[in-house]
Design a protein around this nucleic acid. Structure first.
Lengths: 218, 218
DNA sequence: CCAAACAATGAATGATGATTCATGTTTCAG
DNA sequence: CTGAAACATGAATCATCATTCATTGTTTGG
């Protein structure tokens, strides 16, 4: 093992630092997902990360600080996942369906996300507002686009906004209702159909579409 | 003021007891509505009720106990209000609209209810599950009835369930979004219209209705 | 190889707030 | 009227963590 400096087995200090920080972040996400923010104590988080209590404060100024970081980081992953999954769809309804399904497939991957998201409204309100703003913004663009293309009824923005709220509320709530005690989502196909039917009959215009744009949240 | 025994000015012990208990309950509701369960300390609650800390424990075994009582009691009031308001409606859509509006008019009366309801999912989960069960149960009956009368599309129960979740989610979420920082709801008429349009186009059948039943939650 | 600099550790600190309790007061049955 | 039971009170207790800190170990640039 000749002169390896720092290229091989050993890790540089900053690499290790990043790893430790990530470990703390991941541990926090899991612990919050399992026990909720209230019972996500520093003790639990550091134990799960195999670190001492004090180490936490080498990476985060306070417990609240890591709480505030959870949703932004994981929310961005969620958006990326949804965009990716829905990228192939052409029509409004296809995009909507694929985004809808992607939300639930994301929850399968990250079972702890739903609780983090829901409780953030109370325990990380600023982060929650920001996340919500991102989501609704993307959705509004998507709907305006579909409207422009004549794919959906020609509603004013004042009507689009509550609609967006309804659709987002629906996702979150269905996820909650169809998640079992172990945190596993299992959305029945009937629920997807019902959702799409409501949209199709309630929103779709009969005019021929003009062109395709991006998906919701896209 | 001759021989009044206990009929006039003075109050009997049990009367006083009830009053004190009610004062604590009311104070707790207000404090939770204003500050949330987390910051609803015994100190705050008893101060608002003009009582000493210790008095609290003459009426409730623990802080959690009063938390667990909040939603059942207020939830029952909400249901009563909604039923009362929607009692005059005849058709499915009328009932739905009046119940929908009644939910929001209830929030105007009891601004603290929304926060109690929402946070209960975290801080009084059992009570929240029970409340939710009441609500969905009533709603399901309402929809089955409308289906039986041919007022809405002939959907199976497996489709009705997610639909109920969607409608309930919608109410809660819209309330949240259209409540200002002072806790005052202000639902734009556009939102009501959008909600009803989605139902009307998405659900209503074109068959003639057969007869009328009870409203949602009724 | 060496001395800063940096990081890990877990015991000690400190604040908070629910709950208990000893004491004084009020009610009421007999 | 009277003593026991019920109630009110708020100071004291107690448990629970987040956060700090003194110590020890590790990395790094020279």
């Amino acid at each position: 093992m000749a002169a390896m400096g720092r290229t091989a087995g050993k890790k540089t200090r900053v690499q290790r630092s990043e790893e430790v920080r990530d470990a703390l972040f991941q541990a926090a996400a899991e612990v919050v997902g399992e026990y909720g923010y209230i019972d996500a104590s520093i003790t639990r988080i550091t134990q799960r990360a195999n670190l001492a209590q004090g180490t936490f404060y080498n990476y985060f100024a306070s417990r609240q600080e890591i709480f505030d970081e959870l949703l932004p980081v994981l929310g961005a992953k969620m958006l990326a996942h949804i965009r990716q999954q829905a990228s192939g769809a052409k029509t409004f309804l296809e995009k909507e369906e694929q985004s809808f399904r992607a939300f639930f497939s994301f929850l399968k991957r990250m079972p702890y996300f739903l609780r983090i998201l829901n409780e953030a409204e109370i325990f990380a309100p600023k982060a929650h507002r920001q996340h919500f703003h991102n989501i609704t913004g993307g959705y509004m663009r998507f709907l305006r686009n579909a409207r422009k293309n004549g794919e959906i009824a020609n509603l004013g923005d004042e009507a689009l906004e509550p609609l967006v709220y309804m659709l987002i509320a629906t996702r979150g709530y269905l996820a909650l209702r169809y998640t079992d005690e172990n945190g596993v989502v299992n959305l029945p196909e009937e629920a997807v159909r019902m959702y799409l039917q409501l949209l199709a009959k309630g929103l779709l215009s009969r005019e021929p579409p003009v062109s395709a744009g991006s998906g919701p949240l896209g």
